[in-house]
Write a protein that binds this DNA or RNA. Structure first.
Length: 110
DNA sequence: AGACTGACATACC
DNA sequence: CGGTATGCCAGTC
């Protein structure tokens, strides 16, 4: 294929993950599990985390808006601390590594 | 093809 | 409430 296409190749799952990430509105968060569900793999939360970790397009995908389903922050390629910071910048309060009013801030995919 | 790796989740103790 | 154990999944070695 021509030179322009090779970049859009389907890695399948992970590509979808990054795509879905872009839909998360600012000030909201989603969970690895919700994301997995949205992709048709309700039990692939782990795989989702892997996808984000290897995300080759970090700047385009707000990885910091993806957290654990129990309200914990989860991990972040550049450090959980940085993740915490970014979230608060968007208006998401985090206390002791836990999101305040978590259930109300979760963005659920349609 | 088979084993290992991880930014998870749930159950148990 | 915190640590351990088990299950799950896609990607990579």
């Amino acid at each position: 294929m021509s030179t322009l296409c090779k970049n859009i190749k389907s890695a399948g799952f992970n590509q979808k993950v990054w795509q879905a990430l872009k839909k998360i509105p600012r000030g909201r968060v989603t969970t690895y599990q919700e994301l997995a569900k949205h992709l048709g793999r309700p039990k692939a939360a782990r795989a989702v985390g892997n996808a984000l970790n290897k995300n080759p397009q970090a700047p385009q995908a707000p990885c910091h808006r993806v957290v654990k389903s129990d309200g914990g922050l989860g991990g972040y390629a550049r450090g959980a601390k940085k993740k915490n910071e970014l979230l608060e910048l968007e208006g998401v309060e985090v206390v002791k590594g836990r999101i305040e009013e978590f259930e109300e801030k979760i963005f659920r995919f349609k």
